[in-house]
Design a binder for these strands. Structure first.
Lengths: 192, 192
DNA sequence: AATTTCATGTAACCAGTTACATGATTCA
DNA sequence: TGAATCATGTAACTGGTTACATGAAATT
């Protein structure tokens, strides 16, 4: 008897971060909490009330699987790793085409996808990701600049500056993407 | 009989955006939804399921007050404006000192505070805000660079690049803040 | 012996998402 | 007359926050 699990169409950034981490190596909830609190990895809270339920959810839909470590001792720990199905779904998820909505509403998710991409889908797909990313970011910069041009000049100084902050942030992302593309190109050519 | 309302110690970004908008002029829920969907204002969803309950909450704690417009017609609309108490609380909230946690976890909130500051607390306080902002951002850039220096070079290319994306984003914020400070300085000197 | 770190959880709460629902007004 | 826009809401669900709870192992 096979139980059909509903696949989440949209993964929360927390789940994605967890999947990325356990894709690298088996990790316990505590390991993940440590990563979140001791590194600038995304901006995740290390609260157990978020992480342990998230692990349970991912295990229930069979993307990850927990294995009890040190069962003999009095302090066993649960180490999770990706299931084959989980890896497949993760591959599909991180390789999705980048939409304009992604860069407007889900920048942090895009960066998470990117951070783990190399590991999960390899350099060529990562390269494609960066090209799409750059194109979408550049397009959005144009939209914002258009908006900036029509901004009523005398109305609100700080309002205008806040808008410019957004534009410059996206421009920084574009510059970064160009550099990253160059680095990847080099690495790919060396590996051949 | 005075009912004592519990003041929210932490305001959600959505509530803050709403407060900022109604501080400029009386606005209805529909007006606010339009702002969110037609301008790059923050990254807020215009869903009625978020906005109308938020307006109700803010009205219940007496920061804003709704007034029925066009009561004679069959399609009245509710225009909210800040109460004196609401304005006072908003002034206090946006002027709070900026903590390291703010730049790490709540960048979007800081930008919202800034976008409406001029209107709510005037240029001198806005100027102070920017100076604090710059200092905290620069400090965090150092932390990230320190982290970058200790990053294992061969481990993950995309991981390293994602970290650099973060650093460059904060550096862009610092540059922006320096420019904004210069602009404000000029404007303040002209107005004297 | 006391403190810190390892390690995993639960319960109440809250806010935002999605989807649904309603009806007036204006414009093509 | 039909579509788009104006205008406000509710209900079910979901996931993250805060706070609480427990106890072993390692360190000082």
């Amino acid at each position: 008897m096979i139980s059909i699990m509903k696949e989440p169409e949209q993964i929360s950034t927390l789940s994605l971060a967890i999947l990325g981490l356990v894709s690298q190596q088996p990790r316990s909830g505590y390991d993940i909490r440590k990563m979140f609190s001791s590194t600038p990895m995304g901006h995740f809270s290390a609260s157990p009330g978020a992480i342990y339920p998230a692990l349970k959810r991912l295990e229930k839909c069979e993307w990850i699987q927990g294995q009890r470590q040190n069962s003999e001792t009095l302090r066993p720990k649960l180490e999770y790793s990706l299931t084959p199905a989980g890896r497949q779904n993760l591959e599909k998820y991180v390789s999705q085409p980048i939409t304009p909505e992604d860069v407007i509403w889900r920048m942090d998710e895009l960066m998470l996808r990117f951070a783990f991409m190399e590991n999960i889908v390899g350099l060529p797909t990562t390269f494609q990701f960066l090209q799409q990313f750059l194109a979408q970011v550049e397009a959005y910069v144009c939209t914002l600049q258009e908006f900036r041009r029509e901004f009523p000049e005398e109305s609100s100084l700080t309002g205008r500056l806040a808008l410019e902050n957004g534009i410059e942030g996206y421009q920084a992302n574009a510059r970064w993407a160009r550099r990253a593309i160059a680095e990847l190109k080099q690495k790919i050519s060396i590996e051949e």
